[in-house]
């Protein structure tokens, strides 16, 4: 079984982003970038399938300018076998990303795509569902457990009031939730090994995908700030404030 894992380069989750003065976006210069945490979980899950002799090959793919190759290298250092870098300088959005992935998938023919449920930059939670819609594949979103049984996947999904279990046929798409696994760190020898692993480069222009964005960002602003509150000295003071000042109990 061949597994494809899309990975996205995003602002590191520990960075508190700052909105640019001209309101065109957030400050990305000199900011630490990392692999989207949900995508690390996706890579980890694919690697575990390989270690359990279910998957035979794990391919990481990323789309964007040359820097996204670093993210692919991270995936290779974790243990992915090879990478695909789709060179695209234009602005992306989930629908375009899904179309690019669908186009590459028709050439690569994976049996399973595992990807993060959302990227922590634009918080869209959309690409996996869109990709499976475009391909007409089955989808198992927000996965907290994946088991392969007779070429089918049994997936537990995190839903609003608990956990739901579904079964999907392959080829299919799984999007990862937080509790699926704990991703490994890349060891130094594996980081060295990753440097020799192949990354295939594809120019986006060869894929015949409509690159016009349908959701235009007009401006990006700071959210409204909360006024600083007070530190109360005792439980009694707290209860008094909640009753008589805030009037919420």
């Amino acid at each position: 079984m061949k597994v494809l894992v899309p990975v996205k380069r995003v602002v590191d989750y520990n960075v508190k982003v700052r909105v640019k003065q001209d309101q065109t976006g957030v400050e990305l210069e000199n900011v630490k970038m990392s692999m989207n945490p949900f995508d690390e979980i996706a890579i980890e899950e694919a690697l575990r399938l390989k270690e359990n002799n279910v998957a035979t090959e794990v391919i990481a793919i990323s789309i964007g300018s040359t820097q996204v190759q670093e993210t692919i290298r991270n995936a290779l250092a974790m243990g992915a076998d090879s990478g695909i870098f789709v060179n695209c300088e234009k602005g992306l959005e989930p629908l375009i990303v899904a179309k690019i992935l669908a186009s590459v998938i028709k050439k690569v023919n994976p049996d399973l795509v595992i990807m993060g449920k959302q990227a922590i930059d634009d918080d869209m939670n959309a690409t996996g569902q869109m990709l499976s819609g475009l391909l007409g594949w089955s989808q198992a979103t927000f996965a907290s457990k994946v088991e392969v049984i007779d070429k089918k996947l049994k997936v537990s999904r995190e839903i609003d009031d608990g956990i739901e279990h579904i079964e999907i046929t392959l080829p299919g798409i799984v999007t990862t939730d937080l509790r699926l696994n704990e991703p490994r760190y890349a060891s130094l020898p594996n980081i060295m090994k990753a440097k020799k692993k192949p990354i295939e480069e594809i120019n986006v222009d060869t894929l015949n995908v409509d690159l016009n964005q349908k959701l235009e960002i007009l401006k990006v602003e700071e959210p409204s700030k909360r006024d600083a509150g007070i530190i109360v000295k005792s439980v009694d003071e707290l209860i008094d404030k909640l009753k008589n000042e805030a009037k919420v109990i």
Binding site: L95, N125, A126, T127, Q129, M130, G133, I159, K214
Partner: peptide, 23 residues
């Protein structure tokens, strides 16, 4: 924008060639 909407809306988008406006 909950588990139900997030699971269905983006897939529908792909089927009608629309970009989602989430959350």
């Amino acid at each position: 924008n909950n588990a139900f909407g997030k699971n269905i809306a983006p897939r529908l988008c792909a089927l009608v060639d629309a970009m989602i406006v989430p959350d």
